[in-house]
Design a protein around this nucleic acid. Structure first.
Length: 496
RNA sequence: GCCGAGGUAGCUUAGCUGGUCUAAAGCGCUUGACUGUGGAUCAAGAGAGCAUGGGUUCGAAUCCCCUCCUCGGUACCA
């Protein structure tokens, strides 16, 4: 700690170490989610963590300091490269690069860490896992509908019960229709002006800042309780009224939503198109048996702001969590996606329809930790073969391999220290059983096996040392030949 | 980016109207006793110089300023 020289052991800002139980939980979760993707016909793909900066879609920084947002640096030929910030941009690059070899529609899934150079916040880190799946080369709403189904099924596979989540679907075209109706964008131009982004952002915040907040954001702006002022879109009152009318246009069922949406956007061709895509998605969902309990239409879903061009969706967990202040909150969004028909266009110069979604692995994991019983995340810690008599090491090695051969995780104590220290080691590591073989056992052709978990319970009632040491609680001695069978029995007792 | 709260042993904290602090406590850790057994008990012990740098002062963990970092809110979010 106090050494004058040498580096300080510390983690870069926004990064973290993942403890063993979380690593294991994540592995299990990813495995279940990916098996769903595969069932839907998606195939795996891995791309490197690093891409050329321009391929990721960020433009070269002016000077040596790269733009905020991505971790970028020059490689040995002075080319700008960057850590990927999502899995979609690399997919676009991959598809464009292998266009001639890929069979379309191309369906792939990919899991891995992505990196963002942003301010870390509660539950937000600079490295996090995403679990993506996309269909490239299919423009039909059927592909969008399927993505929503896959999202729902994946969440269930991960351990979220039906009813514990909801997939919310909207269409950017419907949203744009509403903006056209309000006169924020003109139908002719259609391109996203700066102002339309501000409006979309305001809509996106409805759940957090409430209708009043949104109205303020659409107008002059809004000051939050920390005193920070957010500049508004500066819309006129009649424009705001028009947007608010859209925001209130949610209905009870999918077809209701479509009907009210249609009323709100019927003057816009884009809007009408958006609604008809939603109707197509509804037909697909219904045919697949996905009812309103799993997927709903929600005109308020905006999703990101940049590249979505059609249907957008997001999956939220509906169970409530209590934060440290005792306030109840819905857990919220754990996955999202949508249609992006222009991403590959950057490379090929023509539109390539694509749609997909991504599960935020880390957020889903923290939800799962609250949902699943605690020992669902416990892993099978190894049985410890103690080394009471160092001269018997070869014998101990034999025991360990015998246990391992039976498929039971086992380890030989290879540290230094006496028997007492070895049991303490096992105790601190929470190991379930200790195999003991000293002189007594050797002479009688037996082994002793101690149930450390049970022993820990029993120790609560033991007062004096003699009882603790001599009675050998939770320990049995079995014939050497029954080693594995005895261990198996004790392990299964232990689980109960 | 902006606003706010903080940074004292591995952890949680006390001290913060300056001196008695070469910094205290609990937990944890190490060693030993109890002589093949983790717990309990008893005994000994290691471990921070108070985030960093500067300033005020005879004197600073305690006051002031910069920076860094953490936490929270807000903004952004491909």
């Amino acid at each position: 700690m106090n050494i004058e020289t040498g580096p300080i052991p510390r983690l870069p800002r926004g990064f973290r170490d993942i403890p063993p139980e979380d690593v294991l939980l994540r592995e299990r979760m990813i495995a279940s989610v990916c098996s769903v993707y595969r069932r839907y016909g998606f195939e795996p793909l891995e791309t490197p963590h690093i891409e050329y900066l321009d391929a990721l879609g960020k433009h070269l920084p002016d000077v040596d300091a790269p733009d905020g947002g991505v971790f970028a640096f020059r490689d040995d030929s002075a080319e700008w490269v960057a850590l990927r910030y999502d899995l979609t941009a690399p997919l676009a690059r991959y598809v464009a690069e292998h266009e001639k070899d890929i069979v379309f529609p191309y369906r792939r899934y990919q899991v891995g860490p992505v990196f963002r150079l942003e301010k870390p916040g509660p539950g937000r880190f600079r490295e996090f896992y995403q679990c993506d799946f996309d269909t490239v080369g299919a423009g039909s709403p059927a592909a969008d509908a399927e993505a929503c189904c896959a999202l729902a099924d994946a969440l269930e596979a991960a351990g979220v019960e039906r009813g514990g989540y909801i997939v919310k679907i909207n269409n950017r075209k419907a949203l744009n229709g509403a903006l056209e109706a309000a006169g924020v964008v003109s139908a002719a131009d259609g391109s996203a002006s700066d102002n339309s982004l501000v409006v979309l952002r305001a809509i996106d915040k409805l759940d957090r800042v409430g209708m009043d907040g949104v109205i303020r954001l659409l107008g002059e702006g809004r000051k939050d309780e920390s005193g920070d002022f957010t500049k508004g879109a500066g819309l006129s009152n009649s424009q705001i009224d028009s947007i608010v009318k859209y925001l209130r246009a949610s209905g009870s069922g999918r077809t209701d939503v479509c009907d009210t949406l249609f009323e709100a956007v019927k003057d816009s061709e884009t809007g009408r198109e958006g609604v008809s895509e939603l109707r197509a998605i509804h037909d697909m969902l219904s045919a697949a048996g996905f009812g309103e309990d799993r997927a709903v239409f929600d005109p308020l879903i905006v999703r990101g702001l940049a590249y979505y061009t059609g249907p957008v969706f997001e999956a939220a967990l509906t169970f409530e969590t209590t934060d440290e202040r005792g306030e109840k909150k819905q857990f919220g969004s754990v996955a999202g996606g949508g249609r992006y028909d222009t991403l590959v266009e950057r490379f090929l110069g023509r539109k390539v329809p694509a749609t997909g979604a991504s599960i935020g692995v880390d957020r889903l994991m923290s939800a799962l930790k609250q949902l699943l019983p605690p020992d669902a995340s416990a892993y099978s810690a190894p049985v410890l073969v103690t080394a009471m008599d160092p001269s018997l090491m070869p014998e101990y090695q034999k025991l360990v391999f015998e246990i391992r051969s039976a498929g039971i995780p086992a380890e030989l104590f290879t540290g230094s220290g006496g028997f007492r220290k070895q049991l303490k080691y096992a105790d601190r590591r929470n190991l379930p059983l200790a195999v003991i073989c000293g002189e007594d056992e050797l002479n009688s052709g037996t082994v002793s096996i101690k149930d450390l978990l049970l022993g820990r319970e029993l120790s609560k009632d033991i007062k004096d040392r003699a009882a603790w040491v001599d009675d050998r609680p939770a320990q049995i001695t079995a014939p050497r030949s029954e080693l594995v069978a005895t261990i198996k029995r004790m392990l299964s007792d232990n689980i109960k």
